[in-house]
């Protein structure tokens, strides 16, 4: 695992995430959200889970980011009015980060280097999905169908 690549990716991801959380313009925030997810996918590549990284890019940038952008357009009248910013959220977030970091650094069993593992091929993931994870897979399929229909019903024009 490459240290330099790790530093570059983490700076990119965290900067984009921070931009997504704090930028004033909604559209810029949505686009930085997409960049942050590219960074997370790059982390997955670095960790050897290429399939998950590709799935993340596919779902988040190809679908969720475009959905967010469409929602911004459909609720456009509100865009310029977003001036509220709650500073207590910042305090809570910083406190949480400090607490988590402290506890991670205090746990000695976490300072380990990655062992050598067999490459995770798509075939292995497919075999696992079709054998021990068949039921969760079917449930996810059902859930996604239900979510699709639910989303459609929610946004359907009400008849007057």
């Amino acid at each position: 695992m490459n240290g330099a690549a790790f530093i570059v990716i983490s700076i990119l991801t965290l900067a984009a995430a921070l931009a997504a959380a704090t930028l004033r313009k909604l559209m810029h925030a949505a686009l930085s959200f997409a960049v942050a997810f590219v960074g997370i996918a790059a982390f997955f590549f670095l960790l050897g889970a290429e399939f998950v990284g590709l799935a993340l890019v596919f779902i988040y940038i190809g679908a969720v980011a475009v959905l967010i952008v469409f929602t911004i357009l459909l609720t456009r009248r509100d865009i310029e009015k977003d001036r509220g910013f709650n500073w207590s959220g910042v305090i809570i977030a910083v406190a949480l980060f400090c607490g988590l970091t402290w506890s991670i650094l205090k746990t000695p069993s976490l300072s380990i280097v990655a062992p050598h593992i067999r490459a995770l091929t798509v075939k292995r993931i497919g075999e696992a999905l079709m054998t021990s994870y068949v039921w969760p897979l079917q449930c996810i399929g059902l859930l996604l169908t239900a979510a699709l229909i639910g989303a459609l019903v929610l946004v359907m024009e009400e008849k007057r």
Binding site: L31, A34, E50, F51, L54, A55, V57, F58, I61, G62, A63, A65, V66, V69, A119, T121, V122
Partner: peptide, 22 residues
Amino acid sequence: TIDGGILFFFAVGSTTELAVFM
């Protein structure tokens, strides 16, 4: 060469939509 080449093609290709929107 990548293990999930076809998925890579579509994952990267789906980014085009965001670019068109931009």
